[in-house]
């Protein structure tokens, strides 16, 4: 398997606080890599750097052999990285269908003029967008809500909508920031199945998640962060048995003593 994303020596400071400290990992083509760790471990910060939302303080991110640190944020989708957000970033005043259609921005090219004049090319593109958006809404099970306003949807449905919106861009790498947060068991199981399907269709996934059931079922490999640094990496089984990871999550007697 070839490497899709390489993160090397990645660090990020916020003021004087080091949120991410010299982290390395790789995402290979067609795999699901989970990024886990206790609260405040720097997972979301890593995801924000990989998606171009914030620049790293140090280190390199390479995607498909291209150095991403100099690439402006809006180019990421075109190059093949799209994402969902932990605290949903939906366009509430648009319909669900329109939200998903925004995801196809980089796949369409009609100019302001041809859109305003509603030229044939723009109309044709609009129809294609609608069809593709509908396809994805069907896949995530939101077809019946296509014309509802996104603002009127419950949390769980909006998460699904964000996934559809990220997937219509046909990314090579999908970044998911806590997709299962606030979902119940059945919803999480359904979502896990969907991610496996996405992987089978060739899109790699980098996943930040707290739901261990989900991670253990779908992740090919896991990277564990604690206080900004990588403390472990391996298959789900290896991680479950790793003493460092257990210590980070549950604490150890020594730590309790030294703090006390």
């Amino acid at each position: 398997m070839t490497t899709l994303l390489t993160v090397q020596d990645l660090s990020r400071d916020f003021g004087g606080v080091r949120a991410v400290n010299h982290v390395d990992f790789e995402v290979k083509q067609g795999e699901i890599l989970a990024l886990i760790g206790p609260n405040g471990a720097g997972k979301s910060t890593v995801l924000n750097m990989v998606s171009g939302v914030i620049p790293p303080s140090e280190g390199e991110i390479r995607f498909a052999n291209q150095l991403m640190t100099r690439v402006p944020g809006y180019e990421y989708a075109k190059l093949g990285i799209t994402r969902t957000f932990q605290n949903l970033q939906t366009f509430d005043d648009m319909t669900v269908l329109e939200n998903v259609m925004v995801g196809m921005h980089t796949k369409t090219h009609s100019s302001l003029f041809s859109c305003g004049m509603s030229l044939t090319t723009a109309r044709r593109e609009e129809r294609t967008m609608q069809e593709r958006a509908h396809t994805w809404l069907e896949k995530v099970g939101l077809s019946s809500l296509a014309s509802s306003h996104a603002g009127s949807l419950p949390y769980g449905k909006l998460r699904l909508m964000e996934i559809a919106r990220a997937m219509v861009a046909e990314p090579k790498l999908l970044l998911l920031d806590e997709p299962a947060a606030g979902l119940n068991h059945t919803e999480t199981a359904e979502m896990s199945r969907m991610f496996q399907e996405i992987r089978e269709n060739g899109t790699a996934i980098l996943l930040v998640e707290h739901d261990m059931d989900m991670i253990m079922t779908i992740a090919d490999r896991i990277v564990v962060l604690d206080q900004g640094s990588k403390i472990a990496e391996g298959t789900p089984r290896e991680i479950q048995e790793n003493p460092c990871v257990i210590a980070a999550y549950l604490g150890t007697e020594e730590q309790v003593e030294s703090r006390g």
Partner: peptide, 18 residues
């Protein structure tokens, strides 16, 4: 839609390639 997306969330709009 790109205009309206920017209005709601510049971060999300950027990540969609706008």
């Amino acid at each position: 839609r790109a205009f309206r997306a920017i209005h709601k969330s510049e971060v999300a709009a950027t990540s969609m390639g706008i």
